[in-house]
Amino acid sequence: MSKFNLTNYESYYLDYLEGNLSEEDRHAFELFLNEHPEFQLEGELPVFTIKEDENLSNDFINHLRVFDEKEKVNESTIDGFLIASTEGILSTEKQQELQSYLLKNPSHLDSLGMYHQTKLSPDLEITFPNKQGLRKGNTRRLIIGVISAVAAVFIGFVLLFSKEEKHLVLGPKLSLKKDQELNVQDTIHTKDLKFPKEHYSNPLISCSFEKSVFQAISEDSIVKKHIDFIMENTSESLLSVSISDTCVWKKTNSEYVAFSEMESPIEPVFRFAFKRLRDKIDFRYSKATETKQGGFYLKLWNFEVSRKIDASRELAVK
């Protein structure tokens, strides 16, 4: 790209006309003029003449002077050297020459001090008030975070609704009806009998079960897929429930809770969505079993939620 543009070409024009540009710059400038013929000076250049009685002041002439370090330090060049010294661009040799001159002409020391005073310092109390608004990347994370949260809610609701239709399957010889009390010591097996939760009014059973599920999930635990119950006949002839050895809450080293092992995915999905927002979230799925319907999990960043109806199950998901 050409270094010449509409805002700076004028400052190069005189150098060009006087032949002070380098060969490369001269060529580039001519190309620029060819591209912008409207800027080309036509005809002869105006000739400026100064009448003998129109002498320019020394101050003005000095103003026009260009500092050249190769010159000697003297009365006509002193300002340039003082500024160069202030700017810190003098060579060691010239700096020494300047110092020697100042020792002989101490009146210029004031000028040196004045030039030092022209150096500006930024007011650091002036700051841009909305840097956060300039930053990038937050929006993407926020959007993904919102998506993950929405997805978590969606998945949770899907599974909650499916859970409402779910039946606990108990032993083959037991059929628990609404408000029925159990007084047997049978181990309940996972077979054909349906045991709708909403019909299961015995508070001990219901509370015991729900509490266990809640605690397990909140403690980063997993629950086995096959849940068996042992029914016990209490002294009050009320039914109590305990969880058998085959239904233990297991601690896991994995940061992920397999979906197949979630009774309710809402809390862990939320937990992962917020806790792991800056990392990938794994995608897990469960196969439908005798006792549980299938479920699904998601993997974010490459956000993906897939769901598949299995022919043999209502909500098998993969």
């Binding site: 700076n8 400052s11 190069y12 103003h63 260009v66 160069a84 000028s111 030039y115 022209t118």
Partner: peptide, 21 residues
């Protein structure tokens, strides 16, 4: 940054210092 030559920068800075002074 300013799209000018280094020697022009020097000229402008020198002129500015003189004016400020």
């Amino acid at each position: 940054i300013a799209g000018i030559s280094e020697s022009q920068v020097k000229v402008y800075i020198f002129r500015a210092r003189k004016t400020l002074k």
